[in-house]
Computed example of a mutant assay.
Amino acid sequence: MEGIGALLVIIAISIVGLWIIFYFVPVGLWFQALVSGVRISLVQLIFMRWRKVPPRIIVQAMIEGTKAGLTLNRNELEAHFLAGGRVSKVVHALVSAQKANIPLDFKMATAIDLAGRDVLEAVQMSVNPKVINTPPVTAVAKDGIQLITKARVTVRANIKQLVGGAGEETVLARVGEGIVTGIGSSLSHKEVLENPDKISKTVLDKGLDAGTAFEILSIDIADIDIGRNIGAVLQMDQANADKNIAQAKAEERRAMAVALEQEMKAKAQEARAKVIEAEAEIPKAIAEAFRSGNLGIMDYYRIKNIEADTNMRDNIAKSSDDNKKK
């Protein structure tokens, strides 16, 4: 029994040792590369393990490139992986670009990949253009009618501009701006409805794809809806504003007139007070004239008669005015 147990332990240790050896010495991967025409030594595969680079990814990429007629450098593939790149995507893109006769070298492909863009999708988009639907774009023609437009933009990836080039958002913004400008320069909304292709041609001629990662192939107006009559709304708003301004000015003039009337009433009351004050001095003056001998009794009665006659005439005049009003 002891001999059988020792034998089992030796077998287990041997299995673990073989697994460790084959893990660090990927003989099967080396043989696969050898029969595929890729020359790479077992030592290099072991060193890849120590450099934390998965040998299978590098070897499969080199096999794919070799079968496609590409010349790939192992060190460059390892460097790209260690920089955070996607080696398989880059090699797939290089193979696809070669088959489609698209000029793309390894340096450009790795730069695009490290920039965060999908280089394989870019190559596929170069072969099969992509259609981007714009959101509804609202613009107003010169006759004041609002138009709501939707467009389809057909783009193709521009490989040379993928690094540092603007994305889809910039293309959509520029197309929307061009549509607004084209509709705004039209004399009538009917002109836009009759010839929508005129707007798309005008927008396309502006070179909106400059500095972007895409090449615009066509801009097609998909739908145009008529919105509100913005011109009429603006005229109504202006008329209401003018009316409010006129009312405010009229109210200001009325307030000034009321203030002036009150001021005149105050001045009249002030003048009347001065008259009453002056009249209060008359008896004093008469008394002083009596004492000084400048006024006699007959003079006094004559003044009283004149005053009574004046009061009588005033009362008669008031009675006539009242009768006329009735």
Results as ranks from 00 to 15, higher is better:
residue 247 Q to L: 15
residue 161 Q to P: 00
residue 30 W to D: 04
residue 195 N to C: 03
residue 25 V to S: 11
residue 237 D to L: 13
residue 267 K to F: 08
residue 149 T to L: 08
residue 217 L to M: 10
residue 262 Q to N: 12
residue 101 N to L: 11
residue 120 L to P: 05
residue 85 G to F: 09
residue 271 A to V: 08
residue 287 A to N: 15
residue 320 S to W: 06
residue 174 R to G: 08
residue 198 K to L: 11
residue 190 K to I: 14
residue 125 M to V: 10
residue 310 T to Q: 11
residue 78 E to Y: 03
residue 273 A to I: 02
residue 276 I to C: 07
residue 27 V to Y: 08
residue 296 G to A: 08
residue 168 E to P: 00
residue 74 R to Q: 13
residue 190 K to S: 12
residue 143 D to G: 06
residue 46 I to S: 03
residue 26 P to L: 12
residue 76 E to T: 07
residue 315 N to Q: 11
residue 226 I to G: 00
residue 323 N to W: 08
residue 17 G to R: 02
residue 41 S to K: 06
residue 129 P to I: 04
residue 33 A to M: 06
residue 33 A to H: 08
residue 170 T to A: 13
residue 293 G to S: 06
residue 234 L to F: 06
residue 133 N to Y: 10
residue 197 D to K: 12
residue 260 L to H: 10
residue 11 I to H: 02
residue 272 R to V: 00
residue 274 K to H: 07
residue 170 T to G: 00
residue 194 E to C: 00
residue 40 I to D: 05
residue 74 R to P: 08
residue 297 I to E: 09
residue 224 I to R: 00
residue 163 V to R: 11
residue 99 K to G: 04
residue 296 G to R: 02
residue 269 Q to C: 06
residue 307 E to T: 10
residue 290 F to G: 03
residue 288 E to L: 14
residue 104 L to E: 05
residue 119 V to S: 00
residue 27 V to G: 09
residue 115 A to L: 02
residue 213 A to Y: 04
residue 291 R to E: 15
residue 308 A to T: 08
residue 161 Q to A: 10
residue 192 V to F: 03
residue 3 G to W: 09
residue 86 R to E: 11
residue 198 K to A: 13
residue 223 D to S: 12
residue 100 A to E: 06
residue 304 K to V: 10
residue 111 A to N: 10
residue 152 R to E: 15
residue 280 A to T: 11
residue 296 G to N: 13
residue 103 P to T: 02
residue 145 I to K: 12
residue 154 T to H: 05
residue 50 W to F: 15
